Amino acid sequence: MTTFHPSGVQHALYPLQAPIKDYAWGSKTLLPKLTGAPASKTPQAEMWFGTHPTTPTLLADGTALAELVDLPYLVKLLAAAQPLSIQAHPTREHAEAGFAAENAASIELADPRRTYRDPNHKPEMLIALSDFTAMAGFRDPKVTAKTFDQLVQLVDNAELASLLKTMADRLRAGELKEVFAQLVDPHGPFWRPDGFTAEIFAAVQCSTTTNEHLVNALQAAKIHPDDPGALVALLMNLITLSPGEALFVPSGTIHAYVAGLGLEVMATSDNVIRGGLTVKHVDVAELGKVVDFTPGAPPIITPSVRTIDDVTVTRFTPPVKDFALTRYDLPAGTSLTVTATTPRIAVGTSGTGALTSGRDSAVISPGAGIYIPGDVHSLDLRAGDEDVTIFLASRP
């Protein structure tokens, strides 16, 4: 629910100051290139627009956005230069139970061992702003078995070859969950330093394979040696999105973004259960509880597209009640008036334009965010001398 600014003055538009996360997998160039800032000396992974308590977005006067509203969704600009962790997000039921259990165990929210940082689920959707590579969901294990057959031929170690052959046979039999558990077992042979995982990828490195799954996994293994998360990647769908295409990741879907610039919208949560390819806390036991092991096609979402007064309006509506997203592509010199009766977050991704609502007006440019409380005022989107792209996140 929207409340008044602590000053007692209510505005129709609030420009935002988005905090930037400097995770190791972030890019030093993608976000600066988007916003027009100089290249960064450190990774810039995410810009957050929302009210999650761990990373508050601020208004121009320094007031936390959360003092005005408790949004059910969180918007991010994500810039990946290397793979994120193999991960999944919990259902609401799993999150409530896990959050309560860690509170009862007196694990502080800032403790790196913490898995559940809030009691909410975290379905999410990513729209590619550049060519974007991701892994999401499990591919057909019978197809994956052929990749493991190839590994059998590449390695010289007879014990390892026999183990990989057994895993290939289990995949052909549909035992995906069992093979996954075998790979990530913290007491198993694939986590050992200079062990089977390193040996497998040394063989892949020396080969001439063009198998896209092996090539992708090898790149991850170079960043995270001895981490069987790179082998888990072989079980997953490998997806390449073109700019404008969207990926929906429901709760329980295993995934890892690999490279590229995208805009994300998700339920307001920071619950990430990791299984590898990270220096952060890994909890493979909990991951096994929340992951959906049903194989299937990549979870691409198809938007609806229409043209209104020369403006292209693209509506992304995933099957959740927490959020929806609308993209407005305005040619130079055009404008469009929309209704905004509920709270929204606007983020610009291309060109410089303006938003006007009531007596308030604000410039929007790439990387800029604006909070729109939603009231009786209409919202005017306007492009100046160049084409403009604006995303509006809201409840469905």
Rank of each mutant, 00 (worst) to 15 (best):
P319V: 04
L84Q: 09
R274H: 04
S365Q: 12
K177V: 10
K177I: 11
T268I: 07
G174D: 10
R315H: 15
L84S: 04
T197C: 07
P112I: 11
F49H: 13
R114L: 05
R117S: 06
Y73G: 08
D118F: 09
V265P: 09
D111S: 12
L58Y: 06
G8M: 08
V290R: 02
R382Y: 04
T57Q: 07
K76T: 10
R172F: 03
A259P: 02
M236P: 06
I239C: 09
I300D: 00
L183A: 06
A332T: 11
R395D: 11
T209R: 05
S106C: 13
A297E: 13
D385F: 08
L74C: 13
R139A: 13
D270H: 12
G296R: 05
K146N: 13
W25K: 07
A202T: 08
K142G: 14
T341E: 10
K122F: 01
V9P: 04
V272P: 02
F138A: 11
H11R: 15
A134G: 13
M167Y: 05
I20Q: 15
P123D: 11
I345M: 05
G8H: 08
D111M: 01
P72E: 08
L154N: 12
L381T: 08
G296E: 01
E102G: 08
P366Y: 01
Y257W: 13
P141S: 10
G36W: 01
G36A: 13
N237D: 08
H281R: 10
R382L: 13
T2P: 05
R395E: 15
H224Q: 06
D270Y: 11
L231Q: 00
P189G: 09
I107D: 07
V313R: 12
P228I: 06
A110I: 05
G358W: 03
P295K: 01
P123G: 11
T133P: 02
T268S: 15
G188P: 03
